[in-house]
Amino acid sequence: MKFRGKIIDIACLNHFSRVVTTIAKLTKTCVLRLTPDNLFFVLSGKVANGGVSMWCELSQGNFFDEYQMEGVSSEDNEICLELSPENLSRALKTVQNAKSVKVKLTKKHCPCVTVSAELPTLSSVSRVVTHDVPVEVIPRRLWHELKEPSVPDFHVSIYLPPLKTMKNVVDRMKNLSNFLVVEANLNGEMNLKIETDLVSVTTHFKDLGNPPWGGGSEGGADPEGMAEARVDIRRLQQFLMGQQVTPTKAMCNIVHQRILHLVVLHDDASLQYFIPAVA
């Protein structure tokens, strides 16, 4: 099991660090899955994390100037590591002005992902900083929990309004309630609602547009018909808070009363976030 990657381009480094920071805002621990072509940050929906799951996919070629890995075996050419994205994010943030950054799997006092950077100096010798982020190697028998979540059989798929606007709305609603209802239809309309004994608040968005793959399984559904999911408002807030850059596309799929599936697409990275609906 070997892994080594090198980033020279400062824009790539910056971008990678932003992605990791986004992940760090979403979860305390997650799994870093390395394959010859991709890096994945995975959180599988367990009760411990509120049933939330996450799938973030990066194409290594877009970030790394050099990338070599050797998986557990030639058939299972992958590495799965559990780590704290917060640590990784901190490590990357302090090396933003580095001449080059290497990310390696190492064996120190425990297995680590080592981020080492060559920092610019006035002297002839470079200054080197290393951050050893402790990781836990996930045995192969647990890999089945880390498969890409299948896109649910959603009832409605809709583009999201600017995430910043949405965040402002959700931040305010959070003061009033712990739960929020997201509802949307195939006519480009989405509502964010809270309902308590004292107050009901709804924010309406319209003309958002629906992705071309359209109306899910139930063909010929009423375009005005709303699919809804009632979710823990903190999960949605976390997701919105973590978004560091405006994505190319942001959309959400709703499986009526079951799942809110948020998808953020960048040129070279994608993030999916699944929030289970509560009754």
Partner: peptide
């Protein structure tokens, strides 16, 4: 905390 904590190390050359 050894197994959980991130270890950071920085090396400076004498001519700095």
């Amino acid at each position: 905390e050894r197994s959980k904590a991130m270890v950071t190390e920085l090396c400076l050359a004498s001519d700095e």
